[in-house]
C-alpha cells in the first residue's frame, strides 16, 4: 500500500515536471519545417514526410530496417516451431470474404505505396496492410504455406535491407556521401527503396505475428 501511494506521488510529480517543461518551451521556435521546404525541390517527391523519411534522413530508415530484421531474428531464435496445420477459424463466409478482400487489400497497399510520393501514405502504411493481408490468409485457413522455411520467403524478409545496402553503396560511389541521392534520380531511388521496404515490412510483421501465434500452449 505504501509502495502504491509512493509511486502515485512520484508519477504525479513527474507529470507536473513534464507539464512545466512543455509549457515553458519557447513559443517561437522555427523547427525544421522551413529547412525541409527549402530543400523539397531536390528530394524527388512532393510529400515532405516521405522526403524526410526516404531522402533527408534515409539512414534512419536503413537502421530501422535493421532493427526489424534483428527483432525477427530474435523472435525466431527464441520460438519453438510447432507442426500444427489446423486452420483456426473454419467458416465458409470468411473464406469467401478473404477471396474478395485479399486482392483488394493488396491493391490498397500498392495504392498507398504509390500515393506516398505526393500525399500521406508510403512504405510503412502499405507494409502494415500487406501484413494484415497475410494474417487474413493465415486465419481463414487457405492452403498457402507462408512459413519461413522457404528460401523465397526469407529472401522477401531480407529484401529491403539488401536493397538499402546496395543503394547506400551506389550513392557512396556516385556522390561520396551515404544515401545522398542526385536530384535527377532521387524519385527513382526513393520508389525502389519504398517498394522494397513495403514488401519487407509486410512479410516481417506477418512473421512476427505468426511465430508468436504458433508458440506451444504448454511445456512439452
Amino acid at each position: 500500500m505504501i509502495i502504491r501511494i509512493f509511486t502515485f506521488i512520484l508519477t504525479l510529480l513527474l507529470f507536473a515536471g513534464l507539464t512545466y517543461t512543455v509549457l515553458s518551451l519557447p513559443k517561437q521556435t522555427k523547427g525544421l519545417g522551413e529547412t525541409v521546404s527549402l530543400q523539397m525541390h531536390n528530394s524527388g517527391v512532393s510529400n515532405p514526410v516521405t522526403a524526410v523519411l526516404m531522402n533527408f534522413r534515409a539512414y534512419d530508415t536503413l537502421l530501422e530496417m535493421g532493427v526489424l530484421f534483428i527483432a525477427l531474428l530474435g523472435v525466431y531464435s527464441l520460438s519453438t516451431s510447432q507442426k500444427e496445420k489446423k486452420p483456426l477459424l473454419q467458416s465458409s463466409v470468411l473464406k469467401r470474404l478473404g477471396g474478395i478482400l485479399v486482392p483488394l487489400l493488396l491493391l490498397l497497399s500498392a495504392y498507398l505505396l504509390w500515393i506516398g510520393a505526393h500525399a500521406p501514405g508510403g512504405a510503412f502504411q502499405a507494409g502494415s496492410i500487406v501484413s494484415a493481408t497475410g494474417i487474413l490468409i493465415f486465419l481463414s485457413g487457405w492452403k498457402l504455406d507462408l512459413s519461413a522455411r522457404h528460401f523465397f520467403v526469407r529472401l522477401l524478409i531480407g529484401t529491403s535491407l539488401l536493397v538499402f545496402l546496395l543503394i547506400s553503396a551506389v550513392t557512396l560511389f556516385l556522390s561520396h556521401t551515404l544515401l545522398e541521392f542526385p536530384p535527377s534520380y532521387a524519385s527513382a531511388f526513393i520508389f525502389l527503396l519504398e517498394a522494397a521496404a513495403t514488401v519487407s515490412i509486410g512479410v516481417t510483421l506477418f512473421h512476427l505475428f505468426l511465430s508468436i501465434f504458433s508458440q506451444p500452449k504448454e511445456e512439452h
Binding site: 525544421l32 514526410v49 522526403a51 530474435g74 527464441l78 510503412f124 512476427l208
Partner: peptide, 30 residues
C-alpha cells in the same frame, strides 16, 4: 511551432518509432 506549415521531421520519426515499437513488443511477447 508554426501554424501554417507542419514540421515533417517529427512525423517521420514517429512513423519510424511505431515500427520499432511493434518489433520490440513482438520480441518482448516471445
Amino acid at each position: 511551432n508554426t501554424n501554417a506549415q507542419q514540421d515533417p521531421v517529427p512525423h517521420a520519426m514517429i512513423i519510424t518509432g511505431i515500427v520499432v515499437a511493434i518489433s520490440a513488443t513482438a520480441l518482448a511477447l516471445v
